[in-house]
Structure formats: C-alpha cells, structure tokens
C-alpha cells in the first residue's frame, strides 16, 4: 500500500497562529464532553420523570409518557436534529428567534440545538430503563411503603427510585456512553466536536489514517474510562447483603 504514515502530523502547525493539529482534537474533545454532559443531565432528569409517569396508577400520565417514548424512539436522531436546528427556531417568538439566529455565535446556537435534541432523544431511553427498574421491584415493596402511611411522592423518592436506580446502573451506563457516541451528529450541523475536527484534519493533512486512528483511540479510551467510573459508582452504592435486587 502506498501510504506515508506520519504520526508526527499532530504536532505540525495548522498554519493558523501557533496552533498544532493536536489542539484541534483537544478542542473537539472539549465540545464532545460539554455536549454529552449537558444532554445527559436533561436526559436523566426528564427520563426519570417520564419513567415514573409510566408506572403511576393514573391512566393519563402513563399514556402521555408512552406517547413521548414512541415519538422520540421512532424518528431517527438526525431527523430530530434537523427539526431542532432548522425548524424549531422559526417557531419561537420573533425576539428570541432573532437572538438565537443572529446574536448567538453559530457554535452556541448549534450547541443548544444538539443538547436539547440529544437530551430529549435520550430521555425516551432513560424513561424505559427507569420504568423497567421500578417494575422489577417486588410489588410488596410499594405495598409496605404505603402500609406505613407514606404518600406517593415519598414512596417513589425514598423506596422505589433508590432501589430502581441501583438495578439499572449497567443499562444507564450504556445509555450514557451512547450519548457520547451520538453527540457526533453535531458535526453534521457544523459544530466542531471531535468527529468534525478529525474530518477537518484528515482533509487538511491528507493523513487520514492517523487522524481517524487518533479519533478512534480517543472514543475508545473515553468509553473504557467512563465504564470504569460507572463500575466504581456501582460498587459504591451496592447494598451490603444484597446480591440481586428485585430478583424474587
């Protein structure tokens, strides 16, 4: 294969100031992390509320949450992103619309669109995990809580959710990792996150193998690192004497 490997490419100047190509990757990684974390906060909060709604005795709340989940799960992420980026701003009140389109830095408005999009998209998945976790608990748990006189919000806050979250740490971890991977769609609306920077480096230097290899390694390491963190979290919150919660 006629290909000139050159791993020093990352330390070469990009021709812009004193910047080297590695700086692009670092900036990209920064965007990727910022995007993923803020989207995850939205997903976790909204997803928990929706998941609880799906287990409530009332028909209406459960149905509303189901509609949400089906809607956000059955439309591709990229279509959702286009809708948030190209359409929703036009629906805003004129002042906010102008502010969003003209006053904000393009990167900022793209960032907001992706964060909201990814957060709401992932919330549907988190919802299903939370629901599964709650439903995996023996029915006697909520009965016992009610029998003691606890009210519904207390039953969820003090008894059901703390147990459900412990059960679903592994699937939640993989949803969290999915957020990182999915955040790469931001490159398609011009946000210079990790993948976009990789592509740009590949195009500028023609060292595409090196550029993509580095990106792959970064994603891989990020993935493994987060997995380790979540495993520590899981161990930290593990309840003594309990092997499989809700395993009855």
């Amino acid at each position: 294969m006629n290909y000139n490997w050159d791993w020093s490419v990352f330390f070469k100047s990009t021709g812009i100031g004193s910047e080297i190509y590695l700086d692009w990757f670092i900036a990209g990684l920064g965007w990727t992390i910022a995007l993923s974390l803020s989207a995850w906060v939205i997903a976790l909060l909204l997803g928990t509320v929706l998941g609880v709604m799906r287990t409530l005795p009332g028909r209406f709340a459960a149905r509303a949450a189901t509609v949400y989940v089906e809607l956000f799960r059955n439309v591709p992420l990229l279509v959702q992103l286009f809708i948030w980026y190209f359409i929703v701003p036009d629906w805003l009140p004129e002042k906010i619309e102008l502010w969003f389109k003209q006053d904000l830095h393009p990167a900022t408005s793209a960032f907001i669109s992706v964060t909201v999009c990814l957060g709401l998209f992932t919330a549907a998945r988190v919802c299903e995990q939370v629901r599964t976790g709650i439903q995996a608990l023996p029915r006697g748990q909520s009965m016992a809580a009610y029998a003691l006189g606890l009210r519904l919000p207390q039953v969820y806050r003090k008894v059901l959710l703390p147990q459900a979250f412990r059960i679903i740490i592994p699937p939640l971890t993989s949803e969290f990792l999915n957020v990182f991977k999915n955040s790469s769609v931001a490159s398609l609306i011009g946000l210079m996150e990790l993948l976009a920077q990789t592509k740009q480096t590949a195009e500028f230097t023609a060292n595409l193998f090196e550029a993509f290899t580095l990106a792959t390694v970064i994603y891989f390491v990020l993935n493994m690192g987060l997995m380790l963190v979540m495993r520590t979290v899981e161990k930290r919150v593990r309840v003594p004497g309990l092997i499989a919660l809700g395993g009855k």
Partner: peptide, 17 residues
C-alpha cells in the same frame, strides 16, 4: 389511616437499600 394500622407482610418487605 395506614400510619395508624401496622402491617406485616409474608416476604417481610424491609427496604433493602
């Protein structure tokens, strides 16, 4: 009402966490 009536269950239902 429930807070005034104690209940004990077949499977104990202590809160494991």
């Amino acid at each position: 009402l429930r807070s005034r009536v104690g209940m004990v269950f077949q499977h104990f239902e202590l809160f494991p966490h």
